[in-house]
């Protein structure tokens, strides 16, 4: 028998299951945090970790944990969350299963703005780090506006296909502009930009964490509060309007949030794609279509995914490091292709 999806008992059962899913993912994140803190060039056993946290460890252990590993770990989780929620919103409001800030070129726009900014202000000073998210936001905002404008056709509105094609083209154009731009940089700045572009989290310290954290704390709860609106938008424009939703206003607001989150994430991590694509899909598979669950779960999955990717990248080819962006692309591209094969659009 097919369950009635609107019956209260069914929803209650589903809610219980979803909470269980959230609990399990939390456990996985915790486990991964511990594994990630353990591994690296110098191993720290769980016991040593525990002692270091209690303030018992040696100076060396404290240095490794608090100055090198922890900021990086925290940062990768935060970036993963930002990108995943951004992708979740984009997929929700465009009703396009293949939307992702990376594929739509929004990440590339943020990247271009950051590279421009870095080429004017050397990365060593204190102030620019806090400005980075704003700069990235400016870049991603302009890019999103441009893509919206170029894929808008009078009378037809925005078709998902044209949106994707425009995004791919804009991303190609921006990366070309970036290549031209990076040639003009001096070698030290170039090094920084090159590593940054590959989507690496290794340059991280607490300053980056602090500059990203406010954006996460403000916007993700805001999106969760708007979950029902995304659900309604998902029903289609006609029904959403019928239900009394100011669709254009809400869509624009949500788009703004998605762009802000993507920009903030990219500003500290560089070009990491596919997280915003994979995490929401996995979340929907696990907890169904209601965004009050999809958003938090995809945030958690995004964080987990990037943490895993970064840990793999750190460990797999020691002593060299593979930027997390590359690891994510190697996992994410096949997943995208799988979705492409499966989807009907």
């Amino acid at each position: 028998m097919i369950p009635n999806k609107y019956a209260p008992e069914y929803l209650q059962r589903r809610n219980k299951r979803n909470i269980l899913v959230i609990f399990i993912i939390s456990l996985l994140i915790l486990l991964m945090l511990i594994i990630s803190m353990n591994t690296g060039h110098i191993r720290l056993s769980p016991l040593e970790l525990f002692e270091t946290f209690l303030g018992e460890g040696t100076d060396r252990q404290r240095l490794i944990l608090f100055q090198f590993r922890l900021p990086r770990i925290v940062l990768s989780v935060l970036v993963g969350m930002a990108l995943a929620v951004s992708g979740c919103i984009l997929q929700g409001i465009s009703r396009n299963a293949l939307a992702d800030p990376g594929i739509l070129g929004i990440n590339a726009g943020a990247g271009l703005a950051v590279v421009l900014f870095i080429s004017f202000f050397p990365s060593t000073t204190e102030a620019p780090v806090f400005l980075l998210p704003f700069v990235a936001l400016l870049g991603s905002g302009i890019t999103a506006f441009l893509i919206y404008l170029l894929s808008y056709k009078k009378g037809e509105g925005i078709s998902p296909v044209r949106l994707l094609l425009t995004g791919i083209a804009i991303a190609a154009g921006i990366s070309a502009a970036m290549i031209v731009l990076t040639l003009k940089l001096d070698s030290e700045t170039y090094q920084f930009v090159a590593i940054w572009l590959a989507g690496s989290i290794w340059g991280s310290n607490w300053r980056f964490v602090l500059s990203l954290l406010p954006w996460i704390l403000i916007f993700i709860p805001l999106v969760i509060a708007k979950a029902r609106i995304i659900d309604t938008l998902n029903l289609g424009d006609v029904r959403a309007t019928g239900l009394g939703l100011a669709i254009e206003k809400e869509r624009l607001l949500l788009l703004g949030v998605a762009v802000a989150l993507a920009g903030a994430g990219v500003s500290v991590s560089g070009g990491i794609g596919f997280v915003g694509l994979i995490a929401p899909h996995m979340a929907r598979q696990l907890v169904g279509a209601r965004h009050q669950f999809v958003i938090p779960v995809s945030a958690m999955l995004g964080g987990l995914l990037l943490l895993v990717a970064d840990t793999i990248g750190r460990v797999i080819l020691q002593p060299s490091e593979i930027p997390a962006g590359i690891v994510v692309a190697i996992i994410g591209a096949p997943y995208f292709l799988y979705l492409l094969v499966k989807s009907n659009t």
Partner: peptide
């Protein structure tokens, strides 16, 4: 789209 994803994979 497939080309974009395959390219991303191979470049990575």
């Amino acid at each position: 789209l497939a080309g974009a994803a395959v390219s991303a994979l191979l470049i990575a």
